[in-house]
Simulated assay, not measured.
Amino acid sequence: MPEAPEPPATARLTVLSGPSGVGKGTVVAEVRRRHPEVWVSVSVTTRARRPGEVDGVHYHFLTGAEFDRLVAEDGLLEWAEYAGNRYGTPEAPVRERLATGAPALLEIELQGARQVRARAPEAQLVFLAPPSWAELVSRLAGRGSEPPAVQERRLAIAQAELDAAGEFDAVVVNDDVTRAADELVGLLTAPSSGRSVGASE
């Protein structure tokens, strides 16, 4: 496999989603490290910036009014609210990237992935799955920063998210971060001919 795959002739929007704790951010970070030519969308959020976070790199940090304006202008490909904060994907940068003939990658939650499918049915949806349910439980419990009630709620949500895997075009198992990253890049850069991404079943 070449270290820097050539962009496909037809640009493709790929959405990576999966349950909390499955390692979406870790896999995307590995993709960026090994394949810096892959463009990853930067989400907007109304939550406060955490120590070490850089505006425009980790997120675009917006006020509630700025977020409201983007929603009103239909400027978000998807958006959702989590724990009292809103997160979304600005549509213009994604469309601009695809217009250059190069692929774009979104790392978002299940609710957002469903919104993207509705707005951009040509998008390829990739589900990142844990090697097993036990492994996912271990990863979520290993965070150790949440009370048991919160962990139980996260596990219930994660189970519902795992049940949605059948809605996706491809499943990548995160049993090895490097291998999962390479598999994701392969899906990003594979020719789209011969598949009907987003077609109704």
Rank of each mutant, 00 (worst) to 15 (best):
S145A: 13
S132L: 07
L140A: 06
A123Q: 05
T89Q: 14
A141I: 04
P93N: 11
L98T: 06
A102R: 14
I157Y: 05
R119G: 09
A120F: 12
E107R: 06
G112V: 04
A123Y: 01
R139I: 03
P103M: 05
G112I: 04
Q151G: 07
A134C: 07
V126C: 10
V116G: 00
Q124P: 00
A123D: 01
A123P: 00
E122G: 15
A102W: 09
A113C: 09
R153A: 15
I108C: 12
R97S: 02
A92D: 12
F127C: 02
Q124I: 03
R117A: 14
V126I: 12
A104N: 02
A134Y: 04
T89S: 11
P148E: 15
R154L: 15
A156G: 07
L98H: 07
A120E: 14
L98W: 08
A92S: 13
A134S: 15
P131A: 08
I157M: 12
L155G: 01
R97L: 06
S132N: 08
V126Q: 06
T100A: 08
A104M: 10
L140M: 15
A92L: 12
L125C: 06
R114L: 15
E135F: 01
L125E: 05
G144A: 06
I108L: 01
Q124R: 15
A118H: 12
A141G: 10
V116F: 04
P103E: 09
G112C: 09
S145G: 10
Q111A: 14
R139C: 01
G112D: 03
Q124Y: 00
V116L: 07
P130Q: 13
V94E: 11
W133P: 01
V137E: 15
A113V: 10
S145Y: 02
I108F: 01
T89P: 00
L140I: 15
P131T: 05
I157T: 11
E91P: 01
R154I: 09
L136Q: 07
A134M: 07
W133G: 10
L105W: 08
E91T: 13
A134G: 06
L125Q: 12
A141T: 13
L128N: 00
R95F: 06
L140G: 00
Q151Y: 13
A156M: 11
S132K: 10
A134V: 10
E152V: 06
Q111E: 14
L106V: 03
P130G: 06
Q115N: 03
T100V: 08
R143L: 05
L110Y: 05
A120Q: 12
P147W: 11
R119Y: 07
G101R: 08
P103C: 07
I108K: 03
E146A: 07
P121H: 03
R97T: 09
A104D: 05
L155S: 04
G142T: 08
A156H: 11
R143V: 06
L136R: 01
E96D: 13
P93T: 10
R139H: 04
V126R: 04
A102K: 08
E107S: 15
R114Q: 13
L125W: 10
E91D: 12
P103T: 05
S132F: 07
P148F: 03
R139S: 00
R119V: 07
A120V: 14
G101S: 11
G101L: 11
A118V: 12
G112K: 02
A149Q: 15
R143T: 09
R154V: 03
S138L: 03
L106K: 00
I157V: 13
L105Q: 10
L136D: 02
